[in-house]
Computed example of a mutant assay.
Amino acid sequence: MSTASPDDEDLRLQAEVPENLDGARLDVACARLFDQYSRARLQSWIESGRLLLNDAPQTRTRHPVTVGDRLELEAEPEQSTVVEPQDLPIEVVHQDKAIVIVNKPAGLTVHPGAGQRASTLQNALLYHFPQTAAVPRAGIIHRLDKDTSGLLVIALNLKAHHALVDELARREFTREYDALVQGEFIAGGTVDEPIGRHPRERLKMAVVDNGRPAVTHYRVQERFPQHTHLRVQLDTGRTHQIRVHLAHLRRPIVGDFLYGGPMRGSGLPVLLRDKLKAFPRQALHARTLEVTHPTTRKRVGATVEPPADIAELLELLRAHASGALK
């Protein structure tokens, strides 16, 4: 889709906007035309001025493109790494010729990074679905944090990958999460606050004025003394979005030590208090995922209940709320 000069220290990629991308967002067009790179990486390059649109820098990822526009991207060379297939277990909840939907367990990293080159979901996908070697990031369209459990959709071929990337960019995925939070909510609501890198702590994201738009909807599923079980839906998919937005409301997710700090609450039964205090991850689970199938164009998806660790906490909270646990 794109051309590059191999003699350049940086990769200089060129492409022309085709008719089927007329009017698309710049980052969406780049994701289709330079599909050897992730959309997040392309967005970062656009915002840093590495992309020329008709020979002029364009840093707005949402800028619409027109058929015939010339794009020139100065891509940063990446360290050459090969992701090897590994025979790791995967729970598949839907599979056909174009996509699979998997239920990722807590503790499994989605794709390799600087600190982890193996034992990731991407390694497992390359083993169980060898055809994904021809698809960017082994067909991974979106991600979950390592310690968040739940559903992810995987593209098994390039056509499905392109369709799902575009659908995600149009915010047409349906994603619903279970979140167990510290503190009590009276009613549901929406958080519409921009998210960007934390100004002082580089490992954290935060609500910041110059961040990217982020919208999170939540509704109360169950109320407990000092805690609430929420159902959360995403309009956008920023890094750590649910965790950041709920912490912004001063209702951090149970077990989220990055954004929530030590467990709050007093007067809880010893068993419940100890379980909450020792919970080793954020109590967040991607329970429902629905997408438009890239081939049939029908909606397809799945729902999985929270895993045993979250379910056990919920049962203890219910027992406490009913007076059965003292």
Rank of each mutant, 00 (worst) to 15 (best):
H229K: 00
P225H: 01
F129N: 12
E76G: 03
L51A: 03
T132V: 15
R62E: 06
L164W: 11
A124K: 08
F173V: 14
V181L: 02
S48R: 07
P57Y: 07
H162G: 09
D55A: 08
E193S: 03
F185C: 00
G107V: 14
P136Y: 01
A24S: 14
M263P: 08
R197T: 11
H227Y: 00
A24I: 15
A247D: 05
P130V: 10
D256V: 10
Y218V: 11
P18N: 15
G237Q: 02
S266H: 06
P18I: 15
L258I: 12
Y177C: 11
L317T: 06
L71V: 04
M1W: 02
Q131G: 12
A206V: 06
L249K: 04
D147I: 10
L88H: 14
N103I: 14
V28F: 11
A321K: 00
L152Q: 08
L230R: 10
E19L: 12
V291Y: 13
G301E: 09
Q58D: 12
R202D: 10
V208A: 06
S322T: 15
P213W: 00
L33Q: 13
D209C: 09
F34I: 08
I195D: 14
H227S: 00
L151V: 13
R273P: 01
D309E: 06
A302T: 07
R212P: 01
E290D: 15
R70M: 05
P57W: 05
P213L: 02
A4R: 01
Q241E: 12
S2G: 06
P6C: 02
R62I: 10
R318M: 03
V153I: 14
D178N: 06
R299I: 14
V232C: 03
G211E: 00
H285D: 01
A319G: 02
P130Q: 05
K97I: 13
A302Y: 00
L180H: 00
C30T: 05
T296M: 11
H293P: 11
K277T: 15
A24D: 14
